[in-house]
Design a protein around this nucleic acid. Sequence first.
DNA 1: TAGGCGTGGAC
DNA 2: TGTCCAAGCCT
Length: 363
Amino acid sequence: MAQRDVAAALLAHYRCHARLLPWRSPPGEPPPDPYRVWLSEIMLQQTTVAAVIPYYERFLARWPDVAALAAAEDGDLMAAWAGLGYYARARNLLACARHVAALPGGRFPDDEAGLRALPGVGAYTAAAIAAIAFGRRAVVVDGNVERVVSRLFAVETPLPAAKAELRMLADRITPEADAGDFAQAMMDLGATICTPRKPACLACPLAEMCAARAAGDPERFPVKAPKKARPERRGTAWWIEAEGAVWLQRRPARGLLGGMLGFPTSEWREDHGQTVPPPWPGDWLLIEGRVRHVFTHFALELSVARLFLSVTPSSAALAKALGDGQWWPLGRIGEAGLPTLFARVAQAVREETPDEDEEREEG
DNA sequence: TAGGCGTGGAC
DNA sequence: TGTCCAAGCCT
């Protein structure tokens, strides 16, 4: 197989079948603003196109360029990211925007090495921006490309050990020109035709050249090492309510859900059955339902305990006992920008007391 | 280098 | 229902 045949066949297919996406220029046309390419690439890390589109549109409308984003408040940006997951991306997004805005000219670096040095920009993202926004030849390797290449060459080495080998093979088929279109064509192919399950080989422009197809079992690739079981953890979320407001806690900047608002909780532990002392004195009531949430590396089941206070403790007193936080109006809990785990806690409380608002209004 | 780090959709 | 997976990065 001549390597250039792969690129030629793929690019020809892409010119007719490229997906139209909000951050993308049609094949052959001038590339989009690097800010838009960067913003989309960060959002798309480990995240589906369908999930990203509404966030991308909202972000672009609210912060149309890197200078505007650099001027955003931390809390506003974290709240706008709420629900999209992997919140370190949001923290790095802001750090990166401020870094770029402070550069002479306030523009993104235009080569791979310069991009790679930015916070939140790794090998894949640097290559993708260099190719798509700046037309540089770069070897763009994401999960799609790994799958396509592993099938094209029937690579038997299991992931993740195969990464270096797959990157070398991707380098071999990457053309000197049209690097941006080629990268996006590979990713489109992986997303729509060379899919993890039931690949549509009959529609594939590379079918004739594909070793896995020739071997009759393309779905077997990429070979993957077995993964570990996901442990189960349990804990309790504390719902503290006073005079129509609930206490929200700002989580530490690093770690799980770092920098996001949420409810105070106990530790999350694998040993269950332990009774946890509440963090504030009073008559706590355990709600019936529990909140289950699955993270990448563990599953969590939270009990929810409620405390009603007739007098609102000062924020300073609660912050001293529970950590940095704030009172939030109950009626506007939907605007707090809670990550999904805590949005579910709020929903569980709401479902437990469906008529509470009416009773309060009537009483 | 392997593990931490979210979420929702597909099957 | 559980399992897998999606345009990875950081430490």
